[in-house]
Every structure is written in structure tokens, then in C-alpha cells.
């Protein structure tokens, strides 16, 4: 179950970016997506969230969500942590979390669970999101998504531009979600991070998933890293 994508094509107006993506992410696993800048990783996430018109199939826990109006997609158990965080900047931390939990009725036990994962946010509930530090903002972006209690969590470069201690914190959170049975889809560009976290890795090129391999079959100098990421 988890997330199953078959033959997904999508783009921006006349520009086609994704040309038949096949991809799966299983519950309790971290599936990483790698690919060069412009390979279409972010576009894939937007298409999954129903924010771009597309053809093919996107199933969440067996339910087809492609073609639904965008606001009907997350209710099926999909949450998105966008690249660059895209918080509701003028809103407070608490209000950002409230938006995250709208579809789940903002039940207090979900909020408590999320704040246990990121206690620092609990101390800053009244603070305006735009005034948080970069690391705190990323925590909030993840926490906001978790308020939706997702079955599938899409994370688009969550550690981009963060210092090591913050990266470790976010990595721990991802590990815990995996243990809770969430299907985690993680766009990540750094090889060592992928090798540490991933169960499986999808390599994107030319608007497709060119290769999908088990992380156990990858070593730091693997051919795929050179071919699809250029490192």
C-alpha cells in the first residue's frame, strides 16, 4: 500500500516536466528521491498533492487521488513539507499547527504528540512563524504536516541550509515516523544522508524515475550517484 504512482505525467501549462513516473513508497520505509537540479523532484511532489494537472495514477493506501481537486487530496492521508518550507509566515506557530490539523479536527492528542517530537516549538507557540530561526522553521514545517496524521509524508529537501545539529534532529524525527509506520518520501541531495536514512532510493532523470534500488545495494561511490546526481 503506501504510495503507488504509475505513469504519472504532469507539468506547468504547455511545459511537460514529468513524463511517466513510476514510483512506490511503502509504509514504515524511507524512500529517498535523488536527481539533479531541475530533474523534477519538486514537480513530482506538487503533482502528487494535486496542485498540477496530470495523467496516470497516484494511489494512497489503495485510493486513487489523481484528478481530485487539490484540497480533497490531503484527506486521504498525504502531507507535504514543501521545499523552502513555505510556512504561513505572518501566522503564529500555533496557528500554523492549527491549519495543519484542520482536517483532523485539531485533536489535542495529535498536537501533544507532534510537540513531543519538537519540544522547542511548544515553547514558541505564540511566536510569529516568520521570526523563527531557519531550523525552527523547518521543524514547524514538519510539525504542521504531522498534525494531519499522514500515512504518506512527502519531505522536499528538509535539511537544505541547516546546521548539523538541526539536521540530526530532523533525521531523528524522520526515523521515528518510519518506526511509526509512515511511508516517508524524502528528497535529499547529500549521499551520506541518503545512505544513513534510506531504505530505498529512486533516481530521477529526464522527468522519469530512471532507477529504483534498495539502499543496501548502494555504497558511497556507487555508479548511480555519479550518473544521476553528479557527485
Amino acid at each position: 500500500m503506501g504510495l503507488e504512482i504509475a505513469g504519472l505525467s504532469a507539468g506547468y501549462g504547455p511545459v511537460t516536466v514529468l513524463r511517466g513516473v513510476d514510483f512506490t513508497a511503502r509504509p514504515g520505509e524511507v524512500t529517498c528521491i535523488m536527481g539533479r537540479n531541475g530533474a523534477g523532484k519538486t514537480t513530482l511532489m506538487k503533482a502528487i498533492m494535486g496542485l498540477l494537472p496530470g495523467t496516470g495514477s497516484v494511489r494512497v493506501a489503495g485510493v486513487e487521488v489523481l484528478g481530485l481537486p487539490a484540497h480533497r487530496v490531503p484527506g486521504h492521508g498525504l502531507a507535504w513539507v514543501p521545499q523552502g518550507r513555505r510556512l504561513f509566515g505572518p501566522l503564529t506557530v500555533a496557528e500554523n499547527l492549527e491549519i495543519g490539523g484542520l482536517l483532523r479536527g485539531n485533536r489535542p492528542e495529535i498536537r501533544a504528540h507532534v510537540l513531543r517530537l519538537f519540544p522547542r516549538l511548544g515553547e514558541r507557540l505564540g511566536q510569529v512563524a516568520a521570526t523563527l530561526s531557519g531550523g525552527e522553521q523547518q521543524m514547524l514545517a514538519i510539525a504542521r504536516a504531522l498534525c494531519l496524521e499522514p500515512k504518506v509524508l512527502l519531505l522536499d529537501e528538509p535539511t537544505e541550509g541547516l546546521q548539523p545539529s538541526m539536521i540530526a534532529l530532523i533525521r531523528d524525527a524522520v526515523g521515528q515516523l518510519r518506526a511509526e509506520g509512515v511511508a516517508v518520501v524524502l528528497v535529499e541531495q547529500r549521499v551520506e544522508a541518503v545512505l544513513k536514512m534510506a531504505d530505498r532510493v529512486a533516481f530521477m532523470a529526464h522527468g522519469r524515475v530512471a532507477e529504483m534500488v534498495s539502499a543496501a545495494d548502494l555504497a558511497p561511490g556507487a555508479r548511480q550517484f555519479a550518473e544521476f546526481v553528479g557527485v
Partner: peptide, 9 residues
């Protein structure tokens, strides 16, 4: 877009 991603119509 992000609002829609959290279920806002």
C-alpha cells in the same frame, strides 16, 4: 497552494 495541501477549499 500550501493552504490547499492542508485541505482548504
Amino acid at each position: 497552494d500550501v493552504a490547499q495541501a492542508f485541505g482548504i477549499d
